[in-house]
Design a protein around this nucleic acid. Structure first.
Lengths: 168, 168
DNA sequence: TTACAGGTTTACGTTAACGTTAATTACATT
DNA sequence: AATGTAATTAACGTTAACGTAAACCTGTAA
């Protein structure tokens, strides 16, 4: 690591994720306009890479780590909509500081035989842990937000002083 | 990386940070009971390490990266309350996925000559960027939370089924 | 048919954030 | 005097998450 936030910053600088998605759908990707969760449309690795602003290398790496398992036509990878959803989940997890390994165990739990009581208990426990982490992050974010507010107001005040020529 | 969340998980498993702090203050650390922001009390590296559940190595590393600058008595590091606050900020930043380098530039901006208009503008810009990132994280957290809700309810329902002997 | 745009595997390189000895110092207690 | 506890510097090791380069295939547009 840790290029995650850098990549993300690049995202933000351009446009909001939702906006990117929508404009792409409207302008280039007419197939997807028809139905939101089209189960027949497929994606090439480059398409997904562009959509989520990551490299094909990353996507292949996620597969190597057992987080994705696309089908193939010949030697080329073909991604279905469920793969795209998974990728989206991976990236969301990353933004929140989850390691790929953690995301994988969550996926595995979700996938594996859900009839086992042991599995279900483990799932619940992990769920609780994650919830605690997320709550802490929420608290952190709120504190940072108010601090940013303070900094901003002080900055703007000082700038106003400067413009009034009190110092310069 | 990425041991951050692991360490943090260990925190959560034990007790809430505030509770740890309070009990320590009440039981062992009588000096600190008197005033919250005591500007005279000092801390050894081990104390801070224990309080924040990190290793002394990490604290020295943060210093090496220019994030902390404790005084000395002889060759031993002595941390004042402002150093402790800085450390707390560092860790909060880490929990939110900031790199140490990012935290440092924030610190540097905060510290450096605040009369420069350029500095202030830069500060505001960075502040805006961070705010965007935090907003995205908030959205991510909310989505994850509701998904966790779903998973939990499904888990509990299936467990109830199991206990009623419908399957087993 | 020659580009070329996109895909593939293999494999070594890189960075951040520490971990982990090792060898040494110093104060406190027994 | 010996033992224990906490600190120090120096330096090499480690892990996650990719980056990057090389060498290759492959359908299609010029």
């Amino acid at each position: 690591m840790n290029y995650a936030h850098i990549k993300y910053t690049r995202n933000v600088k351009d446009m909001s994720p939702r906006l990117i998605l929508d404009s792409k759908k409207m302008l280039y990707d007419k197939v997807h306009v028809m139905s939101q969760s089209d189960n027949e449309t497929t994606f090439a690795i480059g398409e997904l890479a562009r959509e989520f602003d990551i490299t094909p290398r990353s996507i292949r790496f996620y597969e190597e780590q057992g987080l994705l398992s696309p089908t193939r036509t010949g030697q080329n990878r073909v991604y279905l909509n469920k793969d795209r959803v998974r990728l989206k989940l991976i990236l969301r997890g990353k933004r929140l500081g989850f390691s790929l390994a953690e995301v994988k165990t969550l996926f595995d739990m979700y996938d594996s035989n859900p009839n086992s009581a042991v599995q279900l208990e483990a799932m619940l426990e992990m769920s609780e842990q994650k919830r605690a982490v997320l709550n802490q992050q929420l608290e952190d974010i709120q504190m940072l937000m108010t601090e940013l507010d303070d900094v901003e107001t002080r900055c703007r005040e000082e700038l106003a002083e400067l413009k009034r020529g009190k110092i310069a």
